[in-house]
Design a protein around this nucleic acid. Structure first.
Length: 296
DNA sequence: CACTTGACCTGTCCGC
DNA sequence: TGCGGACAGGTCAAGT
């Protein structure tokens, strides 16, 4: 599921609810999801949240400083439920009503539950890690060793950072001269955080056929691709991310970017620009969508 | 080296 | 209604 905009959406939601809360207990229902000694986290307080690529990080401080890394892969969800006080009806703190949340938590895809208390120890709240397909993972690292993490250390530049310029994009992509543009965009070593949805969307905005090889791109096209990447990611964050099937934000609500997407999941529908049919093709085993008339 | 495929899992949808 | 196959936002290892 989540690509950069979805993880960013979750991060912004959780930031409001979680910072300052203390971990009371952690229940792991699927051991492979979270292979760590969770006891060291009990009693620790949430300091801050960050995101790197598609990874959400929760920094906590207890006897030692730890960072909890979350990768949601295809079907992961992180849903927060606050309570006004123990025993009373559940109510979301710092969010909207959870009208999009179909199931009561926990449900059958709940793999891990974090239980929190506030400083007064009078109220409890819960963070549910749900993951139907069990591809997602949670890892525990010392905060001082986050940089060494084998997943994080191989990531390319953050596309929404100041350091990311069109020249950086060009340099990164040119390491993969013969690769199709869309396949290269999805490689996390090239740029961090772009997945199947935004790779197709960025190519459409840039008017570039996703099958083009990197070495055929002109500087003008690298600039357009740069704009396409930023625009699709920023627009999606504005709409709360993309929900095809599983994605919900930390309050259990869907995202609405796909209602405005140019090509993703729009096979045989009219192009929003030229009204010709959008086409679906397969690249590297994944679906790509394009408008054959707008993209060359 | 430059790609593609299968595996990891569970579930849904579509055609027969 | 059942059954098989394709497909689903990601990543990794193994193939060609």
């Amino acid at each position: 599921m989540p690509e950069l905009p979805e993880v960013e959406t979750i991060k912004r939601g959780l930031q409001q609810s979680l910072v300052g809360l203390k971990i009371r207990s952690i229940e792991v229902f699927n051991p492979k999801t979270f292979e760590a000694d969770t006891n060291v986290l009990v009693g620790a307080t949430v300091k801050r949240l960050c995101r790197r690529a598609k990874v959400l990080m929760i920094e906590v401080e207890g006897d030692a400083e730890y960072t909890i890394l979350f990768h949601l892969k295809m079907s992961g969800q992180l849903i927060f439920q606050g309570q006004t006080s123990r025993g009373q009806d559940q109510k979301v703190v710092g969010g909207h009503p959870t009208k999009d949340m179909l199931d009561q938590m926990p449900n059958k895809s709940t793999r891990v539950i974090f239980e929190f208390t506030d400083s007064s120890h009078k109220t409890c709240s819960y963070l549910y890690f749900n993951d139907q397909r069990k591809f997602g993972w949670i890892k525990l690292v010392k905060t001082s060793e986050v940089e060494k993490n084998s997943f994080l250390k191989n990531l390319g530049p953050e596309p929404l950072s100041r350091e990311f310029t069109w020249q950086v994009l060009k340099t990164q992509l040119l390491k993969y001269k013969t690769w199709p543009v869309k396949v290269a965009l999805m490689d996390q070593i090239v740029i961090a955080g772009i997945g199947n949805i935004y790779a197709s969307e960025a190519c459409f905005i840039a008017k570039i056929d996703p099958r083009r090889k990197i070495l055929t791109l002109t500087d003008t096209e690298f600039k357009k691709l740069y704009k396409g990447i930023k625009e699709s990611l920023e627009t999606s964050i504005k709409y709360g991310g993309s929900t095809r099937t599983h994605f919900v934000n930390s309050a259990g609500q869907k995202g609405y970017f796909l209602d405005f997407a140019f090509v993703y999941d729009r096979e045989n529908q009219g192009c929003r620009v030229c009204h010709q049919m959008i086409k679906r093709i397969t690249q590297a085993g994944r679906s790509s969508y394009l408008c054959p008339y707008c993209q060359h």
